[in-house]
Design a protein around this nucleic acid. Structure first.
Lengths: 239, 239
DNA sequence: CTGTTTATAGTCACTACGACTATTAAGGGG
DNA sequence: CCCCTTAATAGTCGTAGTGACTATAAACAG
């Protein structure tokens, strides 16, 4: 099996596909591009592209992330490998194996425009289904993964700007999970977890929303949540 | 980025690598093959092989699993995609992208022998390091993933034969985590989780070990563990 | 028979959390 | 200006889950 003579294998095209998620106006949005050519012309798809000869899939994903969002610096963004999709028929033209990534953005950046022909746009999750190829599945897997990781990691801060209120942090959970959370209990849990958030010494935010102004926090150094912050009994979430 | 003209991409070889884990004599073992040729001749490596033109990575992984373990039926075994390793230099000969899988076996099967030239063998984890290629990393990632999934899924039963005692189930946790667990507390937790295990109506196992004979259980229908069974404070397990 | 080993039963205290109520501090509409 | 709405924050109460532990039962080794 490990003999690599020249004809022992069939060459594949290897691509990356990106499920880029953000929160706009309290709703989960995904970055999508409209396809201009067959197959699936006119359909929306996840941004992505070929892995180049001298880069890893991670490199390719971050390069595509910069290109498609139009952001100058994407080095601080959360980017994580989801899994690889390799069904023989997933692209009708040829054998394409795609390594999927999930990326999380804090501030809704400008609708942007890369140098690319196809314009990428933020559309409310789950987007205009069906997406091209198996991208519905990839996007759903990304959503599921992010929802699960909110439970036992500090990932939620990746959706927030550098300084944020506990209300904004709670909205991340509520939006991704699709459930309402008890305000005081959420606050107690977050503040009781060492390293999740740390208070900003400046004054509380005043402007914008109604209600009592909230204190500002920054992301702390912790990455894991022990014990986890479990979703309210949404039974049956298998492996 | 999505224009697929014939020369827009470089072809890659796509392989699967398998981290096959089992418990033998109370120790975690991995299935490894000794390499007969360069590069890394004489080193041990994870079993694996090329993905064929008409199969998915999952198909290839299960095919390799059957070939390398020599088992007639591998359809019931737990096989799960880990992640994809794609560093440009990971194989010195050519550009190889590898989709890694973790597989779990219950009964230590015979040391086996596939039709393959290289004989695969069970070696105690983490094996004779360094392994070939980036296989140390893959194997470590598999161990980490399995350890994490024991916390919030019913995966532990994948290491057990169809009927098992709670002591055997507890040994799975202790062996993978490398920590001792309190017997009564473990029992209470497992039995209190609906669908984790269900009692076998027959008699308790008598033979073999010392001590009071234990009752036999089968795996239940549940896949998730709510609330999870957390490892005793092994702080700092990041994303 | 005795000591060792493992399974099983049960207790106790503390933590974490769900479900609340109450208070504070803003904005908006009249 | 007052009052209503909204959201942040403070605090209470009861309970499930769990860590630490003791006790008993049932096998085997000598």
């Amino acid at each position: 099996m490990r003999g690599y003579d020249k004809y022992a294998f069939e060459p594949f095209a290897v691509t990356v596909d990106l499920a880029v998620l953000t929160l706009r106006a309290g709703a989960l949005h995904a970055l999508l591009v409209e396809r201009g050519q067959e197959p699936y012309a006119g359909r929306w798809a996840l941004p992505g592209g070929f892995v180049r000869p001298q880069e890893s899939a991670e490199d390719a994903a971050r390069r595509e992330l910069a290109e498609e969002t139009g952001l100058a610096d994407v080095s601080g963004l959360h980017l994580e490998q989801l899994r690889t999709y390799s069904d023989p028929g997933r692209d009708p033209r040829m054998r394409v194996v795609s390594v999927a990534f999930a990326a999380l953005l804090p501030d809704p950046p400008e609708p942007h425009g890369g140098g690319d022909a196809a314009q990428a746009r933020w559309l409310p999750y789950p987007g205009p289904r069906p997406l091209a190829f198996d991208h519905d599945r990839i996007l759903a897997d990304a959503h599921e993964r992010v929802g699960a990781k909110l439970e036992y990691t500090c990932l939620a801060t990746a959706f927030c700007p550098p300084e944020f209120t506990l209300g904004e942090l709670r909205q991340v959970y509520e939006t991704v999970w699709g459930t309402a959370l008890d305000r005081p209990n959420f606050r107690r849990k977050v503040l009781a977890t060492p390293g999740f958030v740390e208070p900003v010494t400046g004054a509380a935010r005043l402007t914008g929303g109604r209600g009592k102004p909230a204190a500002l926090y920054r992301a702390g150094g912790a990455t894991a949540l022990h014990p986890p912050l479990l979703r309210p009994a949404t039974e049956g979430r298998p492996s």
